[in-house]
Write a protein that binds this DNA or RNA. Sequence first.
DNA 1: ATTTCTTATCGCAAATATGCGATTGGTTTT
DNA 2: AAAACCAATCGCATATTTGCGATAAGAAAT
Lengths: 101, 101
Amino acid sequence: MKRNTEQINYRENTEALAKFAKALGHPTRIAILKHLENQSCCFTGDLVDVFPLAQSTISQHLKELKKVGLIQGELKPPKIKYCINQQNWNIAKTLFQQFFD
Amino acid sequence: MKRNTEQINYRENTEALAKFAKALGHPTRIAILKHLENQSCCFTGDLVDVFPLAQSTISQHLKELKKVGLIQGELKPPKIKYCINQQNWNIAKTLFQQFFD
DNA sequence: ATTTCTTATCGCAAATATGCGATTGGTTTT
DNA sequence: AAAACCAATCGCATATTTGCGATAAGAAAT
């Protein structure tokens, strides 16, 4: 139950870092991102072959990653090509670096 | 519902990174850690004054951070002094660095 | 011994997250 | 136009997270 936390004004960076961390807080999503780092890009279908998870589940995780901006989908009919969003990736990278100083 | 995910054997580093990320995935916990970085150490009571959250809630968050090893509690009767666990902190730092290469 | 102080834990309620099958929506091919 | 393909979304079940007040547990001070 989020009562008080919602009203707290954390520093902007704190919120942003937590948001990225939350998105990274699941092994499947880490694995997906690692896969994207190697392949530079890939399609949802590829991932369904790599992980023993339902297509809808993979799609869910991709949605989470897209929500925080770590990846982006490019329409490449009839497929969708997912890539790392370098700009936000670098923002996340910097936030983590600063955090661990 | 975790059905298949539990059976997947991700690489060890993937699991570890996700575990740390999950623990960092809440602004209050980020803020607590930032506080510990500045103070080097502090007591639960101090945090209750810093954040407008119930004592039990702070204690919960500290428990999470302790669970993944990012902090440790030292009995300093009648208080408990919390510090960053440098060893695990460095492990986490390295994992994130490698991840973002 | 009793009171006080500090922190952890319990029990509850509500919100989120996770996973799946089934369905839908949009293309492309036939 | 119909069939096939790909990916997102819906609806559901279950698990986990978040937060609080109340209580318990431990030590210190009176």
